[in-house]
């Protein structure tokens, strides 16, 4: 009997022989190109081809938010967006939030509030929080909880993440 069970596992990897699609997109303000496989996720392209591993892969099923990026300013799970769909669009990843010398206010707030432990959820949460504050500069606690409910964190219990959102909103 073959290991049929494991064959159904989704895998972010690509097979270079299949890379027939050329995409052009703007990532963190810079024009970039990549040859991708038709079924490749934006997350894989960012991490493995464009060398931007800041966005994390913790589930590849849209459940954890570790891969959160902005696509034309809208918050998306990069694991659920095909790389080909990003062709001609603008992507902002966690690597693109900080200005030259200065951390983004959300990034600084996460450090100062103690909202980072292992940090694996952090890139996604930082991007999601930046998107939240862009849309709603002064969220209530309930709005905050709802807006970040797609981002799992296993370490912090979220309390310090809420502190960081409040701190960032004030700064």
């Amino acid at each position: 009997m073959r290991c049929g069970f494991w064959r159904n596992v989704p895998w972010s990897g690509v097979w270079h022989e299949d890379r027939g699609v050329k995409i052009r997109l703007t990532v963190n303000g810079e024009p970039r190109e990549a040859d991708v496989w038709a079924g490749e996720s934006l997350l894989t392209t960012l991490r493995d081809t464009l060398e931007l591993p800041g966005s994390k892969n913790a589930c590849e099923q849209g459940e954890c938010g570790s891969c959160s990026v902005l696509l034309d300013g809208a918050l998306v799970c990069a694991c659920l967006v095909l790389a080909a769909q990003a062709d001609g669009h603008e992507v902002t990843t966690v690597e693109g939030l900080a200005d030259r010398e200065e951390l983004h206010r959300v990034q600084r707030a996460f450090v100062e509030a103690g909202a980072v432990q292992c940090g694996f959820c952090t890139p996604g949460l930082v991007v999601a929080t930046a998107a939240l504050l862009e849309a709603n500069p002064d969220p209530s606690d309930d709005e905050m909880r709802e807006a970040l409910s797609g981002n799992l964190c296993r370490c912090t219990g979220y309390a310090k993440i809420f502190d960081a959102v409040r701190l960032a909103a004030r700064s």
Binding site: V94, A98, L103, V126
Partner: peptide
């Protein structure tokens, strides 16, 4: 390690 973790 907070800064490298928030910048990716």
């Amino acid at each position: 390690d907070g800064v490298p973790k928030v910048t990716g």
